[in-house]
Write a protein that binds this DNA or RNA. Sequence first.
DNA 1: AATAGCTGCAACCGCGGGCGT
DNA 2: GACGCCCGCGGTTGCAGCTAT
Length: 371
Amino acid sequence: MGRAPCCDKNSVKKGPWSPEEDAKLKSYIDQHGTGGNWIALPPKIGLKRCGKSCRLRWLNYLRPNLKHGGFSQEEDNIILSLYISIGSRWSIIAAQLPGRTDNDIKNYWNTKLKKKLFGKQRKNLRGKSQKQGSRKGRDQMNSSMDSNNNINTNPSWSEFPILQQIPYSNDEPRYSNDHTSIRMLLMKLGGKFYDDDDDDKPMNGALNPQYDPMDNSLMHPLYHNSINLMSSAPMGVMNTMNSPFTNSHEYNVEGKAVCWVDTDTEKQKLRERMGSDTSVVLALNDGCNSTAELEHMVYTDTQKLDDLEMLYEDMLNNKPSTTLGGNLDWEDMNNLVFPFPPLVVSNNEGHQHGTLLEEGALNELRYPRDQ
DNA sequence: AATAGCTGCAACCGCGGGCGT
DNA sequence: GACGCCCGCGGTTGCAGCTAT
């Protein structure tokens, strides 16, 4: 049985709101509030609008203290961090950004932020989709499925073999393939932003790595807080997951948290557990026979990490990887684990003072519908 | 200058969940 | 427990303005 319509679609006005309509709605709500019933509101005001439309107009445009446009770097970072942690839960993300609406953030993500993140790749996509009409070109960035739920033949995030190999745990929230895949790719790229004007140059002040004088390594702002906090407790965030690992080592290089465990059994454990949200970005076991070797690799040989990025570009171009060479092949890729980073929310003073959300809030954000 | 293609944003749509009866 | 209603959410669409050719 279908749901009854919330209003008579033939008698309600649709499309852009006029200043008069805005004034009526704002004036009424300023004086009387919403009354807790949007459906009943339009007749009271004399508006020929659907209640849902009134609600949307109020929440997204008329509500006081709303900010429009001009997202700051700080807001970018928060959006990215939360997107990586919880996916496309725009309302939750909006709750962390005063004055921003979920619609605003959703639009900003779809139109700008995603391009900032994958600016380098967008260049590669140019000419493939954009000659096929504006809507089609745009939709190919947003969806990998056609109307019959068939996977499109054009390459999309969800079709990369490496992404399909990453397992889900049973209690993990299900996200759409596209969002999940994009999040995974963000893990691999370390959330690196590229400026539209110079695709090869990480954006100044964004998520590019920063030098950390404390340990002579390159710190990644996105993880800076979490690394600091992790260092204040053994095993850091992994501890909050009741880590079963008896011998593990965490490093930070080029903004990527690297975790190494000693045995195949533990590696397997890591893969099983880290399939869901965790703090460790990249576990890189193979190619190192000891922690000392790993340490050397982490701090002096970033070639493997660079290879990941090159591999990603090849995948986007839908061609067999030519960049793996002897450094990293598909077997190596099978030994990489890319779980999610910690949930970090910074305040206005910058990333130095970010805080990890408390465990309860973290779970609420991650599994609100499972509880 | 014309126009095809692209972008950004506002608004719409349908669905799931919560709540009252 | 079943049902109806409304809210809130995420995905999608429409369209005006901009840009490239």
